[in-house]
């Protein structure tokens, strides 16, 4: 039993530790926690029934449906891509591997507004494919397909960048053993690789989903803000806010803030689980 932990490294005087702790807690409380408290405070200011009334509004409900719909397409596609990319990039060594890894990270380096703009330049009325789309009566910009595409773009790297380092670190000895013992490729993936990467996978999916449901800038550029049709929850919150309908805006925002809290809780849980597994 350890009665007293051995003190290691730099030991600043107590007063310095107190100052550092106080500054950190005040800074975090003021800049991070207070805005979150304000969201819920404003949302419920006029009571739960007014809050519920704002949520149950037809426009808000259709925004909620669209947000769920977009995430239901974007997240599985990027999940599938993330698994394929990490298999190719982590389990094999080939020329140009690092270049591809850098390219996968590109969407993170690009401003959300520019992420939306590039799809306008492709599919908008003056875009490369725009005139062809008009002729065939297909609408992408200012319609749901554009929102889906922009969301896929901004959430593109999440799963892949979580899995590539993890799978590189794990190497492929276990897979090689399975294959020599007669398992086929698919069995090897399902029984060996997948159990090894499940927490990293879940982690990537959680972050990808949070961004997919919460994306604002890129979606705002391609959506066209058509009420009841192309408004996601964040866009609905913006519209209500700009109409000075603050309580309703914060009611919609509180749904998204709740999503953020669930995301943080899941993230906490996954980190705890995978840490526990590592120490076993």
């Amino acid at each position: 039993m350890r009665s007293k932990e051995l003190k290691r490294g730099l030991q600043p005087p107590l007063i310095v530790n107190i100052i550092i702790s106080t500054v950190s807690i005040i800074f975090l409380a003021l800049f991070l926690v207070l805005p979150l408290v304000v969201v819920f405070g404003e949302a419920f200011r006029q009571g739960v029934s007014v809050w519920w009334g704002s949520i149950a509004e037809e426009e808000s409900l259709s925004a909620l449906r669209l947000t769920l719909f977009v995430a239901a397409i974007a997240v599985p596609l990027n999940l599938f891509f993330g698994i394929a990319a990490s298999w190719a990039l982590a389990k094999f060594d080939f020329w140009g591997r690092n270049l591809i890894i850098t390219l996968i990270d590109l969407p993170f380096a690009i401003s959300p507004i520019i992420s939306g703009l590039i799809f306008i330049l492709l599919f908008g009325i003056n875009g490369w494919i725009g005139p062809w789309l008009i002729k065939h009566n297909i609408q992408i910009i200012f319609a749901v397909p554009g929102i889906v595409l922009a969301t896929i773009f901004v959430t593109f790297p999440f799963v892949a960048r979580e899995l590539i380092p993890l799978m590189t670190e794990q190497g492929s000895e276990e897979e090689q053993a399975a294959l020599t013992l007669g398992a086929n490729g698919w069995q090897t993936f399902l029984r060996i690789t997948l159990p090894n990467i499940k927490w990293g996978l879940l982690y990537g999916v959680i972050l990808c989903n949070a961004r997919a449901m919460g994306e604002f800038g890129a979606v705002s550029v391609v959506s066209g803000h058509i009420r009841g049709e192309t408004n996601t929850l964040p866009l609905q919150a913006e519209i209500l806010y700009n109409e000075y309908n603050f309580t309703a805006a914060f009611a919609v925002a509180s749904l998204l803030a709740f999503l953020a809290l669930v995301t943080l809780a899941l993230k906490f849980f996954v980190e705890w689980k995978s840490n526990k597994l590592e120490t076993v």
Binding site: L36, V39, G214, P234, A253, A257, T263
Partner: peptide, 10 residues
């Protein structure tokens, strides 16, 4: 984790 529009209005 917090959507940027939510942080904006908050």
């Amino acid at each position: 984790a917090l959507p940027t529009a939510v942080s904006g209005i908050a």
